[in-house]
């Protein structure tokens, strides 16, 4: 009778325990097998999906973006190089044009100067020639005039002497007198 009571009270305790769950649920070992199995299945599936579907997708997207950015950057660099080359070519053309303009100006100036020089020299030469001719003419006239001075002086002297003494001097005396007076 007493044993029955003990069994009954044990059964009562077991019933209460079952009603409230066996103690603290996280430490209830009877649920471990089920949790472990379902965790293995679900986490296994999850790992497979992540590794083979989700992560390659995200990696692909990030890769594409990286490639696109790198491509755009290199394209931008290429365009910049082209622009630089164009600028350099323009600068060179400009420098060449400037040099050419310089040389043309220089040549023109030199040519004009040479022409001017030539014209000036020609004009000077002509002037010299004219001067020479004039001088020759003057000298001629002067010589002529000087040679005529003796005759005029003789004539004048003879006229003066004739007036003074009433008699014209001889040609020889006159010449002698004139010569001594003029020397």
């Amino acid at each position: 009778m007493a044993g029955d009571t003990t069994t009954e009270s044990h059964a009562a305790i077991a019933d209460t325990a079952a009603e409230h769950g066996v103690g603290f649920p996280p430490f209830d070992a009877t649920t471990f097998a089920s949790q472990l199995l379902w965790l293995a299945i679900t986490f296994g599936v999850f790992y497979w999906i992540m590794k083979n579907v989700a992560m390659p997708r995200i990696a692909g997207i990030l890769e594409d973006r990286k490639d696109r950015i790198a491509g755009d950057l290199s394209e931008a660099n290429r365009l910049k190089d082209e622009t630089d080359a164009a600028i350099a070519a323009y600068e060179q053309a400009l420098a060449e044009a400037r040099n050419k303009a310089h040389s043309i100006a220089h040549d023109t100036r030199a040519k004009l100067k040479a022409e001017q020089e030539a014209r000036r020299e020609k004009a000077e030469a002509e002037l010299n020639e004219k001067l020479q001719a004039a001088e020759t003419q003057i000298t001629g006239i002067k010589t002529e005039a000087l040679s005529q001075i003796g005759d005029i002086a003789g004539d004048t002297t003879s006229a003066l002497v004739e007036q003074l003494i009433g008699k014209a001097p001889t040609k020889t005396d006159l010449t002698k007198a004139l010569k001594s007076a003029m020397d």
Binding site: S34, Q35, W38, T42, F46
Partner: peptide
Amino acid sequence: FSFTNSSLFMVLTV
């Protein structure tokens, strides 16, 4: 190995 509320939420999480 019962399918429990814990199993259900593992499946839902995944």
